[in-house]
Simulated scan of single mutants.
Amino acid sequence: MRKVPTTVITGFLGAGKTTLVRHLMENNQGRRIALIVNEFGDVGVDGDLLASCGIEGCADDDIIELANGCLCCTVADEFLPTMQALLDRPNPPDHILIETSGLALPKPLVKAFHWPEIRSRVTVDGVLAVVDAAAVAAGRFADTPEQMAQPDHDNPLEEVFEDQLACADMVLLNKSDLLDAAQLDTTHGELTAKLRPGVRVIRTSRSAIDPLIALGLSAAAEDDLAARPSHHDTEDGHDHDDFESFAITLAEVADPAALEARLSQVIALHDILRLKGFLAVSGKPARHVVQAVGTRIERWFDRPWQAGEDRLSRLVVIGEKGLDRAAIEAALLA
């Protein structure tokens, strides 16, 4: 029996995973592709964006969203039943994409492909790690001097980032257009030094890559786990207590540009890692998307509000533990 190839897409918050998924699905070359998308918070933004993008040949039930937790922690409860349901369809997919949350560790997910319920029916074609080149160049995942001065210090961002790289079969050095040539070469070299021999690094902008390169790696990653070390290999389990997420509901927004300026200030002041969501703009029939990685903010109108849909402005905030939720809400609701 032919095993259905599955590509696991990992990468830190805001690296460009959802953009990559959309690109691969838009260029599916006639293949039936199913997607499992996982988000850390309890509000699904990425799955909603993908479901509303109108990709030809992509039915609503081809996109399955698992929110409120990382797949690496909910393998038995959510991932396995979802995979079984996909494989049991009368016309199962030709290829499965799994977009993990930006805080997920890919290795526990790859391990799950050994479970008896699915091991003879599906294989990990490859683990793709999407990396934000500008964030790496800015030292987002490096130890700060304060951290280095502390004995036995932990850097949760670095641990997640390194685990994602260690499990990768291919790395997309994304947002390469945000760096000059010298910065890009330096970042590329530093990244390559962290990878297993033979792992290819591809420079991309907006996660654009030929599906013939990204899919069809035939890595069978589930049979190669020993070569993919993790900071958590000696632990029975792990948690994400170093991070937190919450959602803020706003009234209709009269001036998105003014809100963007306020968002930038709040993100910088509270060191927010990721902010994303949708805005209802006064007098506009279309939904307005907001995506922020650090203080880099993008926004655009994506689709009309649907009949019966609540015109709500809602933003998801993700950061390290200890975010001052009350202060952030007060600043954005002012």
Rank of each mutant, 00 (worst) to 15 (best):
A104I: 06
V45N: 11
N174M: 03
R31V: 01
N27I: 00
Q29W: 08
G237T: 07
T249Q: 14
D48V: 11
D125C: 10
A247G: 12
S264D: 13
G41L: 00
H188R: 15
A149S: 14
R314L: 12
L195H: 01
I272L: 01
D310P: 10
E252D: 15
L173F: 06
A327D: 12
V110A: 05
T7Q: 02
L184E: 09
V266A: 12
V290H: 12
A134N: 07
G216E: 10
A129T: 13
E252F: 06
I213Y: 07
I63P: 03
A138M: 07
A168Y: 04
D42W: 08
A326P: 05
E26C: 13
V317K: 07
E26W: 08
C53Y: 09
P304W: 01
D169T: 05
R200T: 15
E309I: 06
L333F: 00
E78C: 12
L71R: 01
G237D: 11
T187C: 01
V199D: 02
L71N: 10
I55V: 15
A258D: 06
G189T: 07
P92Y: 00
M148K: 14
G216A: 06
P106T: 04
K107I: 03
E146N: 07
K194P: 00
E320H: 04
A76H: 13
L103R: 03
A149N: 07
I318V: 13
N68D: 15
A327T: 09
H288V: 03
L332H: 00
E159G: 10
D154K: 12
F12L: 08
S264K: 15
K111N: 14
A331D: 11
Q265H: 14
R311V: 05
L184W: 09
L80P: 09
A85L: 04
T249P: 11
A280G: 09
N38T: 06
E260L: 12
F12D: 02
